[in-house]
Write a protein that binds this DNA or RNA. Structure first.
Length: 833
DNA sequence: CAATTCGCCTGTGGCA
DNA sequence: TGCCACAGGCGAA
């Protein structure tokens, strides 16, 4: 039988790892018990006798103790350590008197004791979640589909200059990434509880009944399960939504559970912490049998499928920024749906009186939430699941965990799996820091930061025509690869490597003797992305469906590559290594500096640059080619032409510019006018001005459109002064990044507004929520939009916002906001002549 | 459970 | 009142 591995769980009852597979033919989950007698374990430098003596109370839970050989990469030596295998994971760690604590207290060293058991099992058995396996009895074998000839040739060619080791990894990863994902039935679920107005129900207090459960399925199923309350008539359907009414809550729960079982994937929005545990708790309260929901401390699993909590997935910053391109602002269902689907929840007012809604309204409300959740699960052209599977395979992580963990966990998974495969000792953070150094030699520009980051060049303000943007494609991953930077290679113990210092002012040296795991994996992923998947995703002679899949792969790889440097500067990362992070940014600074030098030597005019890019004005193609070649031969990393701009408006401040592409598209970077917290009316004015600018092609045309710009800006200022606007057009939106009570040092305006909201409307605001507020005349200066009216809006403040927003680009255009709105004639070229 | 630094902007709150 | 450092938010890379 062939089935996809979804996850591995630990069964406390059987004291075994259980592999959960999905059989696409029957649509069922198949559980396979570990056939290898694998046990939880840790490694220690204590002798077997020491372990037995120290762990008296645990002795019955120790299954095996033996000496094993491991390679200690931090010290570059083979060591013999004691492997202590136990009957259950808690004996290793996670309980009060566990082995890892006992041994550490006695002064022994302990390794690999903080790895979750099911992860340890995945790594040790070389399993790849998300992949197809052949199951025969208890035996499982990875079903290895061959790469298509064409693709294999591409990989062979792209990696022809590399070692066999690297080329083989590339081929293996290419095979893994290519495997399609299974067809799966999926559905969304959302529940409502009869809690009084303004009270948030919680699974820790499951006293109120579940009154509605809405579901929507990939097979067209649309249902709302309702609990009958009172004797009002309930229709049997609303449009194509089926309403099923129950007199008993217990029956409702059973029916929901049965419906859920029909689907392999269940999407919820916050189902880990609310919907599923609440259902499970109610089932317990009412004495209903098992619903198939397994609740843990911070997650809810399904016995017969996989549960994906989209709230967690969408709160992942990497997903938000790289996969969804910042399309949504906050992380509530309303905000995410608004940004991605352009749809909202049904508004039932700030009191949220769920229990008081008449049945039909309740059904509509609940169903809309389930529908939004369903649509979010199907977003990106139904590619979200594919992305999750790609990460699952690369990170060697259960499919369900991908959505629940951050990017550092994904990268950890890639590295740990590789270590276990080689039988290398996974080092402790403290060891890396102690042996390989924690000292930082550079000073961050920003107070409170640990080390120096990238260079941003001073812009040459003004309007520049015919601008080429050159950049180092995936700069940090390229640096990692080129200089072999890894926590194993930095400041190695070999005397003869100490002179291998790429930079004079940073005393870290890099090992010459072997390839680090990080440069190997990151290098391969980078090259696969650049040379294979980006090309295939654009290739015209590949079917649409396949192109899309390649695009999924390349954009997923981008997410991992982008974070691959940052995690080493992240203190909580288990392989935290400040020298690694510092070395990478230092080499980045050296690269851009030297590229600027080369450009100047060629007589090119560099007008701006940030981290890995150079903006070059009016250069010939030949000179740009020459620059590429010189930089590459000098540095060994690729500089390439990223894009051209017809013209770039460059203010005198860094990280802000506006570029018009040959087809008239406007790239806006950093400028106030695009920040999501500024009022819509200002944004609208800003974009109207941009539209005018985008149509200009020559310096003369830019001059000409200044007049038009003046009229637009003047128009908006007049509008403000005459109060011709709606409140929602003038509200600022700022995210509440922590609990209201945690703002102790200052009270920012959005916090002031949020407090007013809580006082006057008796609602609770949560961290992560976006607060909309308006600037008003009067003592407080701000009001939440819900409490304000147009008459009290402080119009002058808004004119000020307009001024600062426009002045950013006006500086470069040689315009002045005050002159414009006072109706003075706009200076044109002729005035100077 | 949790990727980084650089840089701009607004507003707050302490101090003279 | 004005100055200034800092907090907090958002974006670029």
């Amino acid at each position: 039988m062939k089935a996809y591995l979804f996850s591995v769980i630990y069964s406390g009852e059987k004291k075994k790892a259980i592999m959960r597979f999905y059989d696409p033919t029957s649509g069922r989950i198949i559980c396979v018990e570990d056939p290898t007698d694998h046990k939880p374990y840790l490694l220690t430098d204590a002798s077997p006798e020491d372990v037995r003596a120290l762990a008296e109370e645990l002795v019955s839970r120790i299954v095996r103790i033996h000496r094993v050989k491991r390679y200690d990469v931090v010290r570059d030596q083979y060591v013999e350590v004691t492997k202590v295998e136990t009957s259950d994971p808690l004996a290793v760690g996670g309980s009060k008197k566990d082995l890892r604590t006992i041994l550490a207290k006695a002064g022994f060293r302990v390794w690999e004791a903080k790895i979750k058991y099911y992860e340890s099992y995945i790594y040790d058995r070389g399993l790849i979640p998300g992949m197809l396996y052949r199951i025969r009895g208890g035996d499982i074998v990875l079903e290895k589909a061959d790469l298509p000839e064409e693709e294999r040739r591409m990989v062979e060619e792209a990696f022809s200059g590399e070692s066999d080791e690297v080329r083989n990894l590339a081929l293996e990863l290419a095979r893994i990434l290519r495997e399609p994902i299974p067809k799966m039935n999926y559905a969304s679920l959302d529940i409502e509880v009869a809690s009084p107005p303004l009270q948030m129900p919680s699974p820790s207090d499951p006293r109120k009944p579940v009154i509605a459960v809405a579901m929507m399925g990939s097979d067209g199923m649309k249902k709302v399960f309702l609990l009958r309350r009172g004797n009002s008539e309930v229709p049997s359907r609303i449009g194509d939504i089926e309403l099923v009414v129950f007199n008993e809550e217990a029956d409702l729960l059973r029916a929901v559970s049965e419906e859920m079982r029909r689907y392999t994937v269940i999407y919820t929005f916050n189902g880990d912490n609310f919907d599923l545990p609440y259902l499970a708790k109610r089932a317990k309260v009412l004495g209903v049998g098992d619903l198939g929901i397994i609740t843990e401390r911070d997650r809810a699993l399904l016995r017969d499928g996989i549960h994906i909590d989209l709230y967690k997935l969408f709160s992942n910053r990497s997903i938000q920024v790289y996969v969804f391109k910042n399309a949504y602002l906050g992380y509530t269902l309303d905000e995410v749906s608004e940004g991605i689907l352009n749809e909202k929840k049904i508004d039932i007012g700030p009191e949220r009186d769920i229990a008081g809604l008449p049945p039909e309204k309740l059904a509509r409300y609940c169903f809309q939430d389930a529908r939004l959740t369903f649509l979010l699960g199907s977003s990106l052209n139904n590619n979200l699941l594919r992305i999750i599977f790609v990460f699952s395979r690369l990170a060697r992580m259960p499919v369900e965990d991908v959505a629940r963990t951050g990017i550092s966990q994904w990268i950890k998974g890639m590295i740990y799996a590789s270590y276990r495969e080689r039988k290398w000792l996974i080092p402790n953070k403290e060891d890396i820091l102690k042996v390989r150094g924690s000292k930082i030699y550079s000073k961050a520009l920003i107070k409170g930061k640990k080390y120096m980051g990238a260079i941003v060049l001073n812009p040459v303000p003004g309007v520049h025509f015919n601008v080429a943007v050159m950049d180092f494609a995936s700069m940090y991953p390229s640096i990692i690869k080129k200089w072999n930077i890894s926590f194993e290679t930095m400041n190695c113990p070999h005397a003869d490597c100490k002179d291998n210092r790429p930079l004079e002012d940073i005393p870290h040296w890099i090992c010459r003797k072997g390839l680090g795991v990080v440069p190997k994996i990151i290098g391969v992923l980078r090259d696969l992305r650049v040379h294979i998947y980006k090309k295939l995703a654009k290739s015209k002679d590949i079917p649409e469906e396949m192109r899309e899949w390649y695009d999924v792969i390349q954009s997923s790889l981008k997410v991992l590559l982008n974070a691959s440097y940052g995690v080493f500067g992240f203190e909580e990362f288990p392989l935290y290594s400040p020298p690694v992070a510092e070395m990478i940014t230092a080499l980045g600074r050296a690269a851009i500096t030297s590229a600027v030098e080369e450009a100047r030597k060629l007589g090119l005019k560099v007008i701006y640059g940030d981290t890995d890019s150079l903006f070059i004005e009016n250069a010939s193609e030949d000179l740009l080619k020459m620059l590429e070649e010189r930089v590459e031969s000098k540095l060994g990393i690729d500089l390439e032409l990223d894009k051209m701009y017809r013209y770039v408006v460059l203010p005198s401040i860094k990280k802000n510019y506006l570029g018009v592409t040959p087809n008239g598209h406007v790239d806006i970077k950093g400028l106030l006018g695009k920040k999501r917290n500024i009022p819509d009316i200002v944004k609208e004015a800003f974009f109207e001005v941009l539209k005018v600018l985008s149509e200009a092609r020559t310096p003369e045309e830019v001059e000409e459109c200044k007049k038009r710009i003046g009229e637009i800006v003047r128009g908006y200022v007049e509008k403000l002064k005459r109060r011709e606007f709606r409140l929602d057009e003038v509200c600022f939106r700022a995210t509440l990044s922590k609990k209201l009570s945690d703002y102790v040092k200052t009270t920012p305006q959005h916090v002031k507004a949020a407090r007013l909201l809580e006082e006057r409307l008796k609602v609770k605001v949560q961290p992560g929520e976006v607060i909309s507020y308006v600037k008003v005349t009067g003592a407080d200066g701000v009001k939440p939009v819900e409490l304000a009216n147009v008459r009290e809006v402080d119009v002058d403040k808004y004119v000020e916002i307009m001024r600062s927003t426009f002045q950013q680009i006006f500086d470069a255009l040689d315009l002045d906001f005050d002159e414009l709105i006072s109706g003075k004639r706009v200076k044109t070229l002729e005035d100077f002549l």
